[in-house]
Lab assay of single mutants.
Amino acid sequence: MFYPNSPQTSPQLTQIPYGQQYAMMQRQIQQPYHPFATTEPQARLYPYHYQGPIQQEQGGFITQQSTAASPQYVQMRVTPVDQSIMSGYPNQTANGSSSSSFNYNIHPQQQQQQQQQQQQLRHHAMPVGSVPLQDDRYRKQLIVNYLAPDVTSTDLHELFSRFGELDGARIIYDKQTNMSKGYGFVYFCHAEDAKEAVERMSGYEFHGKWLKVGYSTNPLNIVPSNSSPYVHAGSRGAAG
């Protein structure tokens, strides 16, 4: 039997160049792979992502010199942007860049009308829970959420009447099932009393439920100042 490094198959040491006398086997001759043993700084910083320098080929596509990437890492192929796409944008300079302001050559009167329309939209648009300043009635009506099913309009009136005089209180019921929808409205005579009720009743436990109280901004629920107070009856038909 002959071994790869046996004296019968191995040459004389004098015939082997210096430095390879003890590297006779194939696994010894093959050098191990060192990912950080390279002179390129990109490979030292990113050993798993770097795959060699990027070269520009004919046709405008950018390719990489090395083989496919590892399945664990996804390499994105980048193509140059066609400058003709950006030619339609206004205020574009000769080098292809555009300024931040756009001039669509709008007539001054049209621009003024658009600004007025935007101001009107901001004036009428009102986020949930906010209180408008032009109508004091919005500051007097509250919406009470997360009410228990057994709470009546009379219970709601008695709960909030300790903060001040009320114009009314009612629970909203479903017309088909005649069941409470879980929320109601309270109408105060003074805005200061309503503000105190919002601050003190939010998070209050009532009939096993934690109440959420806020201003009601729905104009359909506003009680006119010259109208008669609501009837605080315990029956659902009268309260709904």
Rank of each mutant, 00 (worst) to 15 (best):
H157W: 15
I85D: 11
Q15H: 13
Y146E: 00
Q31D: 11
S216Q: 00
G168K: 05
M86F: 08
S84V: 14
T93I: 10
P17H: 14
A191N: 05
K175W: 12
F36I: 02
F36L: 05
Q12V: 08
K175H: 12
A23W: 15
R162M: 07
S66T: 09
V128H: 13
N145I: 00
D135Q: 04
Q55A: 13
A169H: 01
P53K: 02
Q119V: 14
T154R: 06
F188N: 01
P71Y: 12
Y18M: 11
Q42I: 12
Y138N: 02
M126E: 03
A23Y: 12
P17G: 10
Q51D: 11
S70T: 14
Q83M: 15
T154C: 09
P7E: 07
R139C: 07
R200P: 02
S101F: 15
K181G: 00
I54S: 06
G59V: 13
T63P: 09
Q119C: 07
Q26K: 12
N103M: 09
S130Q: 13
P41Q: 10
N95F: 15
Q12P: 03
F185A: 00
Q118G: 09
M179R: 13
I172G: 00
F185P: 02
S84N: 14
D135R: 02
T67A: 07
G88Q: 05
L166T: 04
Q110Y: 10
Q176R: 08
G59Y: 14
A148K: 02
N145P: 05
A238F: 08
K181S: 01
Q115S: 12
V81A: 03
Y18Q: 09
L13Q: 09
W210V: 02
P80F: 13
T152K: 05
S216G: 00
V213F: 00
Q72M: 13
G234L: 05
H190I: 04
S216F: 00
A37D: 12
Q75F: 15
L45D: 06
I172P: 00
Y46T: 07
Q117T: 07
Q26A: 05
Q51S: 10
Y89N: 04
P108W: 12
S98V: 14
V131M: 14
P80Q: 05
G234P: 10
S225K: 10
G240H: 14
L156F: 03
N5G: 14
A43N: 03
H207M: 05
T217C: 03
Y173I: 10
H123M: 06
Q8Y: 14
Q118P: 11
G168R: 12
A68P: 09
Y187H: 01
F102Y: 12
P90F: 15
R44L: 15
T93N: 14
E57M: 15
A69R: 08
Q115E: 07
H207N: 13
D150I: 04
N5H: 10
L45R: 11
H107N: 15
P7A: 11
